[in-house]
Design a protein around this nucleic acid. Structure first.
Lengths: 146, 146
DNA sequence: CTTGACTCTATACCATGGTATAGGGTTTAC
DNA sequence: GTAAACCCTATACCATGGTATAGAGTCAAG
């Protein structure tokens, strides 16, 4: 029933050291030990580690991931706090989705233009930023240069 | 017309050192210099830097971002290569979107359950992994533990 | 014509997120 | 009952992505 650290690490596809590192960082709670001091994990530890890796791949830091993993309403009194934090995270997730969707559009366009063999000299991926709202000081004049 | 390094850095919201670092890494091409050796940037450098920061926030490494910035069809002969790479990047982008959408669903659910004051003791964010296709060896028995 | 804010190169340092190694005990399999 | 394969702690090291500092030159304002 219980898993040893090496089994958990293999199942999650990470190094054993990484598990101990996450434990030190507080991302994994300290598991119970056997009488000889071996860590005994439940199977759900594997999911937790997989989530951590996935969230990292999405650009979250370990500190941010820790915050995500703390989001639960075990105590009704903490609800307002939890809700506020979840709202922030949700906004961040939606922002990332939007940015990735712009990338998706641009990459699809690039592939299409590739197939139609219409060369472009500039870097199309930068169009990703096109619809972002930087109200830039376009007209600003800089003098004294060269 | 031309911008000095400090102006570009300010406009993009990064440190001056970061620009020089990106140049060394090959993410920014070496700009022309004034007779005295000052770098002279075009305004589009700012977009490039903004793109780099955005892509980092989405979990891409600087090497991956370099690959994204290389995706262009300036030479029709390179089209097959470019198309293949763009396809890979597109798949990765779509995978990330899918993962973030699962997070979005879970966070929305958490906020809803928060409002309805239904406490849960377990960590709801882990549901993110629910629909992933890990055909796990669920039935595997591990003995000899404790 | 000098002072302050900028630039240059080179080098050193830092934070994050690990990974490896040493030195030792434990468990499993023959 | 012993060797291989695992676990433990502690510590050192590493890669990535910067950031800071030193020492020297440049430029604009007064």
């Amino acid at each position: 029933m219980h898993m040893k650290i090496g089994e958990v690490a293999d199942a999650a596809g990470v190094n054993v050291q990484t598990l101990r590192y996450y434990e030190r960082r507080g991302l994994l709670k300290e598991p119970p030990r056997t009488p000889s001091g071996y860590r005994k994990y439940e199977a759900d530890a594997v999911d937790r580690i997989r989530f951590i890796r996935q969230a990292q791949d999405l650009g979250f830091t370990l500190n941010e991931i820790d915050e995500l993993l703390e989001l639960r309403v075990d105590d009704p009194g903490r609800c307002p706090t939890v809700e506020a934090r979840a709202d922030e995270k949700l906004a961040e997730v939606r922002r990332k989705i939007g940015e990735l969707e712009r990338m998706e559009t641009v990459l699809s366009g690039l592939i299409a233009s590739c197939r139609s063999r219409s060369p472009t000299n500039d870097c199309p991926i930068l169009e990703v930023l096109e619809d972002s709202e930087h109200t830039q000081m376009e007209g600003e004049h800089i003098d004294g240069m060269d």
